[in-house]
């Protein structure tokens, strides 16, 4: 079943209350044919368990890694993905779009 934004934010709260390290990723900007709209969330815990989607799959792995790093260092960051990006060859958006994602630890 598709997870809704409600499920994701509720899950973030529940995981945090259960004592797990948690980070939240939010799509803050898109250009071109990005598959997930601005405001879409993904929640990840310190072990890499996640719920939600920021790109329909293309860059989820990289966002999850960023989330785990945010949990570890306690700092929020903005990460960008897109075809013009050097990382595009590894984790670019096949659709040709670009996105920026805000990744923050839940503290």
């Amino acid at each position: 079943m598709l997870s809704t934004e409600t499920d994701i934010l509720s899950t973030a709260e529940a995981w945090r209350r259960a004592g797990r390290g948690v980070a939240l990723a939010t799509v803050i900007e898109t250009w071109g044919s990005a598959p997930r709209p601005v405001g879409s969330h993904l929640v990840v815990d310190a072990d890499g368990n996640f719920l939600g989607s920021v790109s329909g799959g293309c860059v989820e792995g990289a966002v999850i890694t960023e989330g785990m790093e945010a949990i570890a260092d306690g700092r929020a960051r903005v990460v960008a993905f897109g075809v013009a990006d050097e990382t595009a060859w590894r984790v670019g958006l096949s659709c040709g779009g670009r996105i920026r994602v805000y990744v923050e630890p839940v503290t």
Partner: peptide
């Protein structure tokens, strides 16, 4: 995000 901000968002949505 502070947990209390997240909690407030969830409470408003509910």
């Amino acid at each position: 995000m502070q947990l209390d901000a997240l909690t407030a968002l969830n409470a408003e949505r509910a």
